[in-house]
Amino acid sequence: MIDHTTVQKVARLARLQLTASEETLFTVQLGDILAYIDQLSELDTTGVQPTTRAVELSNVTRPDVRRPPLDPEQLLSQAPQREEAFYRVPRISEP
């Protein structure tokens, strides 16, 4: 099931810093959640298609038409940091 190493990896991927006690706590909690969900595998799903949607719809699209003009200021003004028309973010390293 879930061990410390997995929790550490998930935390690293999610950019979360966990204390040792949090790590233990989440190892137990995530394990419990997965064990709970795992009850579903008691069902025989042979021949059942995996589902990717909750409603029987597909190909829902919109026409290639421009939206009415928006004021980008509404979005930019909510940024924690900006520089003129740009969003400003801390110095980054390559992904």
Partner: peptide, 25 residues
């Protein structure tokens, strides 16, 4: 000009829903 063609969807605001462009498809 920078950030003139942005909206809640393409800047990832909470609660928005993407809808596929038919012509791109």
């Amino acid at each position: 000009p920078p950030n003139t063609h942005i909206c809640p969807v393409c800047t990832g605001q909470p609660g928005v829903l993407p809808v596929l462009n038919q012509r791109a498809f």
